[in-house]
């Protein structure tokens, strides 16, 4: 099997996620080439194979028209059976453009490989679909963290410079840094997070109270932050923070894939939820099937009395 892996470069840095693409390719024993719009003078992906490198100074970090054309040229040369991206803001934006141009099947957010077939989540990870492309080429985007290399990436690629038309209809004007300030959840050993199940903003105090009793900080899932019940710098998940505390308590969080991606590396996970089928159960060490509005005050009081 021949694969073309698409690495990413953002805010003047090569993203480490290319190693996840290599880990995925390893499961197929695939022969890999890689494509990157990056900086040849900076750090390059470590692997043994052909690296098709386009200069970021010419083609930009986000210029989907130009990146698609460059990729189409490389695809024509390499004739891969699979083209692999990260399921990231770069990958989910670029992959469907390539898929439409090639009339190739795209499989989004691959979480596993089952007998050579790709497995993706459906319905907020409550279900899993096993899928297969019909044509000669399949495009896949991989869920962040789903595949990882056992050993550090190694090797030096054979660099092949690629050039093409640099024009694009979408212009990147600049970046806006994440809001920080105040709390840094990534440094906290205990995080108690609020999800949609808290019901109303007043109940955030229950979650914050438990966090305090456990000597930790409180966080939240995306819907709670979108509702402005909790500040953005406390959001855990794909588009917020990735955390790995000693203890993570998920209160009223169903466990959407985007949230799981941000907390599944926690050492010990407690879920508090009324729905015992909630996907948060997939990563929970303890699942308290309870209404958080009843359990949290009792639990907090008992912890304070210790």
């Amino acid at each position: 099997m021949k694969m073309l892996l698409v690495a990413e470069y953002r805010q003047k840095k090569l993203l480490e996620s290319y190693t996840e693409l290599l880990a995925f390719a390893g499961q197929f024993g695939a022969e890999c080439a890689m494509f990157l719009v990056g900086d040849g003078a900076a750090e390059l992906p470590k692997f043994a194979g052909r690296l098709y490198l386009a200069d970021v100074a010419t083609y930009g970090e986000y210029n989907p028209d130009a990146h698609k054309r460059l990729l189409l040229d490389v695809v024509a040369q390499e004739q891969p059976e699979m083209i692999v991206f990260s399921h990231s803001s770069y990958g989910w934006d670029l992959a469907p453009r390539l898929a439409a141009s090639l009339k190739a099947a795209q499989v989004s957010e691959v979480v596993a490989v089952d007998a050579g077939r790709l497995v993706v989540p459906a319905c907020n990870a409550k279900l899993r679909r096993t899928v297969a492309g019909n044509g000669a080429v399949t495009i896949a985007t991989l869920q962040a963290g789903a595949f990882s290399l056992a050993d550090a990436a190694a090797g030096s690629p054979e660099v092949i410079a690629v050039k093409g038309e640099g024009q694009g209809r979408v212009a990147l004007l600049g970046y806006e840094a994440a809001e920080h300030g105040g709390v840094d959840l990534t440094k906290s050993e205990v995080i108690v997070s609020a999800g949609r199940g808290v019901g109303k903003p007043e109940n955030i105090t229950l979650v914050a109270g438990l966090a305090k009793a456990l000597g930790g900080e409180y966080g939240a899932s995306r819907p709670v932050v979108d509702a402005q019940w909790v500040e953005h710098n406390r959001q855990v998940g794909t588009t917020g923070l990735t955390v790995s505390p000693k203890l993570y308590v998920a209160c009223g969080i169903s466990g959407a894939v985007q949230h799981l991606a941000g907390m599944k590396k926690s050492e010990f996970v407690v879920a508090i939820n009324t729905d015992r089928d909630a996907p948060i159960g997939d990563v929970a060490d303890v699942f308290a099937v309870a209404d958080l509005k009843q359990l949290l005050p009792v639990l907090t009081e008992k912890l304070q009395a210790l």
Partner: peptide
Amino acid sequence: LLNTVKLTFPEKKGGGVFL
């Protein structure tokens, strides 16, 4: 371009305790 081969429930991690 794409076929679903099957739809399944994810396997539970196991070892999780229900209270």
